[in-house]
Amino acid sequence: MGKALVVVALRQVDPFATVDPLTGTVYAQPRGGLSTADECALEHALRMAESLDARCLACTVGPQEADEVLRTALAAGATEALRVAGEPASEGHTARLLTEAIRARYADPALLLCGDYSMDRGTGATPALLAARFGASQALGLVELTSHNGGLRAERRLDCGRRERLAIELPAVCSVEPSTVRLRRASLPGLLAAREAEIPVASPAESFVDTRIRRRARTAYRPRTRAIAAPAGAAPGQRVRALTGALTEHEPPRLVFPANAAAAASELLDYLEQRGYLP
C-alpha cells in the first residue's frame, strides 16, 4: 500500500492589484503570489505530510502563470504538483475541477488543506465544497492543527476570545486562518530544483456550467435607484424636512427574539418586504 496523500489547494492571487473606486476596474499587476492564508495552509500540509509519513501534493486551478505558486510549494518541500488548466466560474466549479483532477491521478487524499478564503473576493466556500465532493469531514477557519493518534486535533476561534478544540477524523478537508505558522524558508537546492521542475497539467474533459448559478457581468456595486417624489412644502425649510425626514415621527426600533433560525429568517424577510427591498 502506497503512502497516504496530503493535498494543499493553492490559489494565485495578486496582492498588488488596485481597484478604481469609480468604475470597479481591477488593475492587476504581473507579480502574483500566495496569500498568507495559503502560505499557512502549505506549511500545515508540509508538517502533516511529515507527521503522517505522507506525500504532499500542491495543486491549483488556473492558467500557466499559476505554475509559480506550485514552484513555491515544490521549493518549500511539496513532493508533487498539479495544475488544473481552466478558469473556474464559481467555487463549486473549482471544487469539481480539483476533485476530478486529483481522483484521475491519485487516490482520495487523507487530508486536504486550503487557506480560509482567497484575497480576491473569496467566499471561503471552496473547502466546504471539496469536503462534500470527497465525502470527507470538514473543519474550517482553523488556527492550529496537529496530528493525533491517526487523526487530527485543531483549534479555531470563537466569539469573545474563546477557542473551540476539535478532534477530526481522517479523511478531512481543513481550511486555516493566516496565523500561527509561517511558511518555511525554501532551501537553495529546493529552489533550484523547483525552477526546473515540470509541472503536470490536468485539462478538464469538458467545460462545466453550473446552471444553478446565474452570473452577471462583474461591475462595481451600486445601490438600486429608487424614485423619490419631489418634496412637498411651500417654504425651503419644509421641503428640506420633507426630504430628510428630520423632526418627523419614526417607528422606534423593535427588539425581536425569534425562537429559532427559521423564525429569524422570516422576520428578516418580512422587514425587507415591508420596505420594498424584495419584489
Binding site: R185, A186, S187, L188, P189, L191
Partner: peptide, 9 residues
C-alpha cells in the same frame, strides 16, 4: 553563501 538552508553556491 546565501541565507537559505543549504545555501552555498
Amino acid at each position: 553563501r546565501t541565507d537559505r538552508p543549504d545555501g552555498d553556491l
